Computed example of a mutant assay.
Amino acid sequence: MLKRYLLLFTALFFVNICFAQDTIQIKRKLSGHVTEIFKVLKSDVNTRQGSFRAVYKNKIPVPSGMYVNDKKVGLWRFTDPNGVILQTYDYTYKRLFYEAPEDTTSHFRYLVDKELKEGDKVTKPIKIGGRFYGYLPYLTLFTLPNEFKTIDRDDLSAVVELLISPGGRLADFKVELTAGVLNQPLTTINMNIKLPDPADLVFTPATQNGEPIASRIRIRCVVNSSWHLDFE
């Protein structure tokens, strides 16, 4: 019992030392409506330390959680722009506690690259970060090519397609651009999968009867005033 108390005291002492370090607050625009707010060490501005949140229109914290020595720790909460919880995930124990169900109004569609039989049990691929914040990096990485900027933005639509391998890695990333009420195809743009954040390459893969399989995630989007993408 004494040993257990000593271990607990040591852990608490370590955490207190971590958070006692001098930090500075950083604000960084992630998209037109989302701003990340977090702290970094004064001694090393590349090391995040302490609370993290990203707020939608300066109001709704779409993710909120904690960093220790530049690593996400503990339970993180991810919401949509209305504050509805989409996902909760414990980074310390690598455990998904909650993933919100989807219905036909969802901007997301999932396809598996395998023939399905009656009675098969299939699970969708999951991105840690939820169906809003978790997918923002893919939308903001796209910029509308100059040759299409003469088209009225209201006439433009896009579908982001992500191919996820059975190992849970991003294998392909493309954007299909369409125009008009009939969504006439304009072009398909293959995006570079060497993403700035390696975490954006990692997914929980789809499964068929408990076995990981390849899948595709398709996300309906619109072109915003910055020539990037927003959820439809």
Rank of each mutant, 00 (worst) to 15 (best):
M1K: 14
K3C: 03
R4D: 15
L7V: 11
F9G: 09
T10Q: 13
A11R: 06
F13A: 03
V15F: 03
N16G: 03
A20C: 13
Q21I: 07
T23G: 06
I24K: 10
K27V: 06
L30Q: 00
S31C: 09
G32I: 12
E36W: 07
E36K: 08
K39G: 01
V40P: 00
K42T: 07
A54F: 11
A54G: 12
K57V: 13
N58F: 14
N58L: 03
N58W: 15
N58S: 15
P61D: 00
P61H: 07
P63V: 09
S64W: 03
G65N: 01
M66D: 00
L75T: 02
F78T: 00
T79K: 11
P81Q: 11
N82S: 14
G83R: 04
L86D: 05
Y89I: 00
D90S: 01
Y93L: 10
E99Y: 11
S106Y: 03
H107C: 10
F108D: 14
Y110C: 05
Y110I: 02
L111P: 09
E115R: 14
E115M: 08
L116Y: 04
E118C: 14
G119W: 11
V122H: 06
V122Q: 03
T123S: 11
I126D: 04
I126S: 08
G130F: 09
F132P: 08
Y133P: 07
Y138M: 11
Y138P: 03
L139Q: 01
L139I: 00
L139R: 11
T140R: 13
L141D: 13
F142P: 00
T143Q: 14
L144A: 12
E147T: 10
E147W: 12
F148Q: 12
R153P: 04
D155V: 09
V159I: 10
V160P: 15
V160Q: 07
I164R: 06
S165P: 06
L170P: 01
F173K: 06
K174M: 10
A179K: 15
G180V: 00
N190Q: 15
K194S: 11
P196F: 14
P196R: 05
P196W: 05
P196Q: 08
P198Q: 05
A199Q: 13
A199E: 02
D200W: 02
V202T: 10
P205S: 09
T207A: 12
Q208F: 06
N209M: 05
N209E: 06
G210N: 02
E211M: 13
S215P: 06
S215K: 05
R218W: 03
C221Y: 10
C221L: 01
C221D: 11
V222G: 09
V223Q: 05
H228Y: 11
L229M: 06
D230N: 09
E232L: 14
